[in-house]
């Protein structure tokens, strides 16, 4: 019988062959090639896609989409933070107002809210403070404002729950430590609790932001000229339906990709102190 050799330092480790993985990659490549081929020989004029990608009306729509998504999220996050804090308040009135807001605006579909805001003039032809000023609702409630209110306010209801989850995720001891050094509730939330809650809040907010970019397409039904509405306007004129839809899809993918990169950067910022390994300078 051979004596066991315990010294194996001179031996090389052989990387195992993953035949299953190689097979999977081959399958995926085949499938992708098939899809690419189908689109290449299909009834699509790719030259039109290239031409209309930077068509002025499309670019205006793109800018409108991005601006609307950002503004609606600003409104949504502001409302979300306010209502999340109210929701966790000791004050019974504030708490129930927040519960009511979240309940109602999560219940009504976004598309329906857009239509209601846009058609507000049917309910209130004029608005203002009696005796002070009064304006025609139709002249104020433009597609832009209706979209902003509709999307922002419903977003606030969802964001409030995200922010509340974040606030609840912070350890009780952090609240007590902040109080024990004499911070008021607002100071505590701003300097101690929110920065820690952000770790939990940012990933779902990033998700919602991406959702918002796509949700702005709903505003096409109230004639807000975001990118999909612009694409539709163009293809009504030139009949290049699929080409223009692909143009829109390309821009959505680009915008969402950029947002995802920004999200990664923000998450790294709020990981400070939690994963110190990431912060070797």
């Amino acid at each position: 019988m051979q004596k066991t050799s315990y010294d194996i330092s001179g031996l090389t480790i052989v990387t195992p062959r993953n035949y299953g993985r190689i097979f999977a990659v081959l399958c995926i490549c085949l499938a992708l090639a098939g899809i690419a081929h189908a689109f290449a020989v299909g009834q699509i004029e790719w030259s039109y896609v290239a031409e209309f990608l930077t068509f002025p009306a499309i670019l205006t729509g793109l800018v409108n989409t991005v601006v609307m998504a950002i503004l609606a999220m600003v409104v949504g996050i502001a409302l979300g933070v306010i209502f999340a804090i109210m929701r966790l308040s000791d004050n019974l009135v504030l708490r129930n107002v927040a519960i009511g807001y979240i309940w109602f605006f999560r219940a009504v579909p976004a598309l329906l809210q857009l239509l209601i805001w846009f058609n507000l003039a049917l309910i209130f032809p004029n608005f203002g403070i009696p005796g002070l000023f009064s304006v025609k609702t139709v002249s104020v409630m433009t597609p832009f404002l209706a979209a902003l209110l509709g999307l922002g306010i419903q977003q606030g209801a969802f964001t409030a729950e995200v922010v509340r989850a974040g606030l609840l995720s912070v350890d009780r001891g952090q609240y007590e430590a902040a109080q024990s050094i004499g911070m008021t509730r607002m100071m505590m939330l701003r300097y101690i609790i929110m920065p820690q809650a952000m770790r939990v809040i940012v990933p779902p907010i990033g998700n919602e932001f991406i959702g918002m970019v796509k949700l702005t397409s709903l505003a096409s039904v109230i004639q807000f000229s975001e990118i999909l509405y612009s694409a539709q306007t163009v293809y009504y004129a030139n009949n290049r339906v699929i080409e223009l839809l692909i143009v829109s899809a390309i821009w959505y993918v680009i915008v969402v990709t950029i947002l995802s990169l920004i999200q990664i950067w923000i998450e790294r910022h709020f990981d400070r102190g939690i994963r110190p390994i990431n912060h070797k300078k």
Partner: peptide, 24 residues
């Protein structure tokens, strides 16, 4: 709240679990 915060400044507390602020 504001008055409670003012009164708490007379005292300071050291906790069993330290409760340092992890992001600072």
């Amino acid at each position: 709240d504001a008055e409670l915060a003012r009164q708490r400044r007379k005292t300071a507390m050291v906790f069993q679990r330290f409760n340092l602020f992890p992001h600072l």
